[in-house]
Amino acid sequence: MITPETVAYLARLARIELNETDLARFVPPLQEILAYVAKLNELDTSQVEPTAHVLPLTNVSRSDDPLPSLSNAAALQSAPCTDEGCFLVPPVIE
């Protein structure tokens, strides 16, 4: 059964800040849902190929011909914070 610790770890992986109250609210439905999806284990799928795509498509590609890019203004038009034609973020510590 999924624990609050696991949910906290997953939330961290997904970069979503969850406090104790949040965890208390999120954990029970997740437990319930996971208990439900466990019904797939009733099926023996050892001989079954997975379906990643429903269409039998392969080798879809494009030719290496350039097309116009966006203007810098259009590229940044919805960014919350910009400077010098770039997206601005708090310092990234390396």
Binding site: S71, N72, A75, G85
Partner: peptide, 26 residues
Amino acid sequence: TATKMFCACPNRFGDPPNTNVCPVCL
């Protein structure tokens, strides 16, 4: 290559920032 891996933006070094970009590579 002339273009990027998954879009038709020019694959070129040294241009002003965020000018060889499109919805795909953004």
